[in-house]
């Protein structure tokens, strides 16, 4: 597939997936299988875990330091620390504010969309109920972010 070849351009980027619903996380991961990128994706299941990952605190403290992600896929409704709170933290921290954050949620509420963009989200995507559409979304998503998009050099 020519798509795969183009995609390889950004093959080294790392992605942080923040998703509390294990089923949804599984769907996202399976969708990305076509891009052969799953090794680059790190999954956390709540907002606090996401922050801990970024700041190397809690379970992520100590030696086994992970690299700072190039892209963050963030759900909105998260246990403990809400998605919007996580977004606020990221975008107000000089270390992380350049990381593109993409909201991937089931919520289509205008308020949530407005809140996300107010807090400088880079993109807002709604999870389609239909699997085929979900696949299409992830395909376009990968094509865009993994092939065309230029990331800042750390």
């Amino acid at each position: 597939m020519p798509l795969r070849r183009i995609m390889r351009l950004n093959e080294n980027i790392s992605i942080l997936l923040v998703e509390d619903n294990p089923a949804h996380a599984e769907i996202v991961l399976r969708s990305f299988e076509t891009y052969d990128m799953n090794e680059n994706i790190f999954h956390v299941s709540d907002g606090q875990e996401a922050l801990d990952y970024l700041y190397r605190e809690g379970n992520f403290a100590g030696g086994n330091a992970k690299r700072i992600p190039d892209l963050i896929i963030l759900d909105l409704r998260l246990p403990k620390v809400d998605g919007i709170e996580v977004l606020k933290k990221i975008k107000s921290d000089i270390k992380f504010k350049t990381i593109p954050v993409i909201i991937l949620t089931t919520s289509e509420s205008d308020k949530d969309i407005a809140k996300a963009y107010t807090n400088h989200v880079n993109s807002y995507l709604v999870k389609p109920i239909d699997l085929e559409k979900f696949g299409e979304l992830i395909e376009s998503f990968g094509y865009y972010w993994f092939s065309w998009n230029k990331f800042p050099v750390n």
């Binding site: 089923a23 919520s107 289509e108 699997l131």
Partner: peptide, 20 residues
């Protein structure tokens, strides 16, 4: 919000995995 989100969530799951 929850009706649209929390009820939609399992629906997304069911649809996706019945698809897989």
């Amino acid at each position: 919000y929850t009706v649209s989100h929390d009820l939609k969530s399992p629906l997304v799951t069911i649809k996706a995995f019945t698809g897989y």
